[in-house]
């Protein structure tokens, strides 16, 4: 019976992994920008939620009304004014990646620095929906369940957008071949900017949701950029709809593996799976390689 609860917990954990990676897959897979400052928006979403509940005594979900638009706009500006010049002058994707890494790394320093100065490095946490939910004989935390459901809803919404809207079709085409996409009349830059901005907003949303059950500080950004990147690579860069599934696989393997073998190894299993996939199927689990 514990095993079933562990499996369920692994699914919820995996939902969290998928959630934090959705935005990065939009930024890296679609807009082709490996944004090292991605986690800073996750952190910003977490802090906005924290202040909303702890300072203003409001439901932290309301913080999304603030953090989503701000993250969207800032990321849009970053793409328009910092990334487009790099895209323009890069000879190929490798050269672009190198430039992008440097610039977004600088952004990471700036954002984290601002956070440290204004919000100190102290660990923060708050209690929201931290009650048990009993499902089929297992107990899960309501906040984790909520984040999982939100992850599923977001992934589904993204799936619908990508499959059935004009915007989504453009994004899919751009992910496959940006040059061909522009040759059918897709304004790749405009849509990349929007995809990049949407990715940043998703980062903030995931930060808000995760902050309901994990404590955080001004310096957690890098850790979550890395976690997100692992899931993105696991799913396949650009496989937005596979991101949640990859997260779920990772979460279940980590939780069940740790329980069956040794709790010390949960993080090792996480990285182990990642490396295995890199070795055996480097384009990702869900690519049509």
């Amino acid at each position: 019976m514990i095993l079933f609860e562990v499996f369920l917990g692994g699914l919820l954990l995996g939902g969290m992994y998928g959630l934090i990676a959705l935005g990065l897959n939009l930024q890296y897979g679609v807009a082709r920008i490996l944004n090292l400052s991605y986690g800073e928006f996750f952190m910003g979403g977490a802090f906005t939620a924290f202040f909303t509940i702890m300072l203003w005594k409001l439901n932290p979900l309301l913080s999304l009304f603030v953090s989503l638009p701000i993250a969207f706009v800032i990321n849009w500006l970053i793409y328009q004014y910092l990334m487009i010049p790099l895209v323009r002058r890069a000879a190929d994707q490798d050269a672009l990646d190198a430039d992008v890494v440097l610039v977004t790394f600088g952004l990471f320093f700036v954002f984290q620095g601002l956070a440290l100065v204004n919000w100190s490095g102290d660990l923060r946490g708050y209690s929201f929906l931290s009650s048990p939910v009993h499902l089929v004989g297992a107990t899960v935390a309501f906040n984790r369940l909520f984040a999982f459901l939100a992850a599923c809803a977001l992934a589904f919404a993204l799936f619908l957008v990508l499959r059935y809207t004009r915007f989504g079709t453009a994004l899919r085409a751009m992910t496959i071949d940006p040059v061909a996409a522009s040759l059918v009349g897709i304004d790749v830059r405009k849509f990349s900017a929007l995809a990049f901005a949407a990715g940043g907003a998703l980062a903030a949303a995931s930060g808000m949701l995760v902050s309901t059950f994990i404590s955080f500080s001004s310096t957690i950004g890098v850790e979550y950029t890395l976690k997100a990147l692992i899931v993105v690579i696991l799913a396949g860069v650009g496989r937005v709809t596979g991101t949640l599934a990859a997260g779920l696989v990772l979460g279940v393997v980590e939780s069940v593996g740790g329980y069956l073998v040794d709790p010390q190894l949960t993080i090792a299993i996480n990285f182990g799976l990642f490396m295995l996939v890199l070795l055996l199927r480097p384009t990702g689990l869900f690519t049509r390689a």
């Binding site: 004009r166 453009a170 496959i176 040059v179 996409a181 059918v184 897709i186």
Partner: peptide, 22 residues
């Protein structure tokens, strides 16, 4: 220069969706 991971139909749809009369 077709988009390999989209269907035949979708490839043609692209031409229609983003052309002069979106």
């Amino acid at each position: 220069r077709v988009l390999p991971h989209m269907t035949t139909r979708e490839n043609v749809m692209l031409g229609r969706m983003f052309g002069s009369a979106p």
